[in-house]
Computed example of a mutant assay.
Amino acid sequence: MSWADGPLLGFDTETTGVDVDNDRIVTAALVRRDHTGTHVHSWLINPGVDIPEAAAAIHGVSTEHARTHGAKPKQALEEIAAELAQAFRDGVPVVAYNATFDLCLLDAELRRHKLRTIPERLYNEARPVIDPLVLDRAEDGLRRGKRKLVDLCGFYEVVESGALHTADVDVVATLDVLERIVGRFPHLASLDLDTLHEYQSTAHQAWAEGFNAWRLEQGLDGPGVSDVWPTREPVGTLW
């Protein structure tokens, strides 16, 4: 029996922007896949701030719609965190595409609303996490081209069940991509979850160091990417 046989819990968010320390969650989805099928739990949240037009154009949720129909963030965030923490306690892998973004942003939101973060609930780090983006880079690092979720759906011939950049659709697509990655690189299924988690952490660190070195060679400004996966401590005040 392999972890690839399930259960798995997929996680994704759509947000007001890409700053994990200061942006807010607008929609979120948790999708459990096990022997009984695929089960979706999704949230629409009033983030308490205006949703920039550029973000709304991506995920389709306007400030007005979120204010009218969205749940209060504290209640929704508590529900999301409770489900994720229980999965980690049960040893169920949490699957997230570019997991650092969603997990760090969630922990920042929890701190903002004076709720316990995932590590605080677990008295430990959040693990095991499975990130198809990290696995794809690690297993097929020489392949050219972009590696957004839509790109991997194309490469692995995953047909989305709806429009990407909708949290629940993205999670299902992420789980499908993971299945295809394991099918192409079957040795991953033989790893125990602790080994798989550490393998991804090491692989991400190596990729980040290489990417940041390339940025320096190109003379690009900015701090580059963090070499920590899947979570890091927040930066700033979180207000």
Rank of each mutant, 00 (worst) to 15 (best):
T27R: 09
D136S: 12
F185T: 10
L238D: 03
K72N: 11
S201M: 14
S190H: 14
L77I: 06
R89D: 01
V150R: 15
E125I: 08
A57L: 13
N124R: 15
G10A: 06
V150K: 15
T38K: 09
T174Q: 09
N46V: 12
E64T: 13
A4V: 01
A213I: 05
V18Q: 09
A206D: 12
E125H: 11
N98H: 10
E217I: 11
S42I: 13
H187I: 08
V26R: 14
F101A: 10
S201L: 09
A167F: 03
S161T: 13
R32P: 00
A208N: 09
A203G: 06
E125P: 02
E79K: 09
A66L: 05
A28N: 07
S2C: 03
I45H: 06
K114A: 12
L175Q: 06
A29E: 07
D227C: 12
G70I: 06
V169P: 03
V40F: 04
T63L: 07
R137P: 02
T36R: 15
G154V: 10
K74A: 12
G70C: 02
M1Y: 07
T174C: 14
L9K: 04
V134T: 14
A82E: 15
Q75W: 02
A28F: 09
D50A: 11
S161D: 13
E217G: 02
W229A: 05
D90E: 15
P234W: 04
L220M: 15
S226W: 04
P223V: 11
R67P: 03
G183Q: 04
D90K: 05
R180G: 04
A96R: 02
G224I: 11
H113F: 12
V228F: 04
A96F: 00
F88G: 00
V61E: 05
G236H: 03
D136H: 15
E120R: 06
H41I: 09
E217T: 11
F101D: 08
L188E: 02
T38D: 06
R67T: 01
A206Y: 11
T36G: 10
P230N: 07
A213Q: 14
D107F: 01
N212K: 12
L188I: 00
L9V: 02
D5F: 00
F185I: 10
A66P: 00
H69D: 01
L44K: 08
P47Q: 07
L77V: 05
T166N: 15
D50R: 13
E125Y: 11
G236I: 10
S161K: 14
I118P: 03
V228I: 13
D227F: 05
S201D: 09
W239M: 12
V94F: 00
V92S: 09
A82L: 15
N46R: 09
T36S: 13
L133V: 07
T36Y: 01
F11R: 02
H197R: 06
D168N: 07
A126P: 08
L193H: 04
R32L: 12
R232E: 10
L149I: 03
V31T: 01
L133R: 07
R144P: 09
T16R: 14
D107I: 04
V26W: 13
L152D: 06
E233Q: 11
W229P: 06
D227L: 06
L84Q: 00
D192H: 07
W3Y: 00
